[in-house]
Amino acid sequence: MKLQKATEFALYAVLELAADPQRQLTALDIADKYGISAHHLAKVLRDLGRAGLVAAVRGVGGGYRFAGNAKRLTLLDVIRLFEDVGGSADAPTRSPAPDIAEGLRFVLAEIDAQTVATLRSISLATMLKLSAHRPRESATDARPQRRTASRVR
């Protein structure tokens, strides 16, 4: 899954700020850390501010601080501020369609539904924990130890 740049920057910013809600960071601080465009990030932070996820702190030493609830806000909440994901999972079926088109739509909807469920189940707090203590193997690396149907009744 590839996210748009603005979405990716928003996740960096929100997670960075949520890691320490008392801390204020400027767009430049965050941009430097992640090696991304400060100009683009500043625009993203304004969008996050309008959505109430971050608050701008004015004056010397100002910047942004986290303004949400890290245990309640999910990755999907942040992503959907910037782009649509899992669109086909929610979309009404257009009919009638040729069988092949319908079949493809069914499979793509299955993938989208899984994506949405995953992003919806990971809060910012959980994401921060996962970042700090990454599992030794990723879901895509893990393989069943034996790849045979060893127990089919």
């Binding site: 995953t118 919806r120 189940s121 809060s123 203590h133």
Partner: peptide, 21 residues
Amino acid sequence: ARDNTVIQSFFRSQGMIAGPF
């Protein structure tokens, strides 16, 4: 269940991730 966000969020908060099955 895929649509059971409460229980899925609980297990994820414990550190569980998608597995290979």
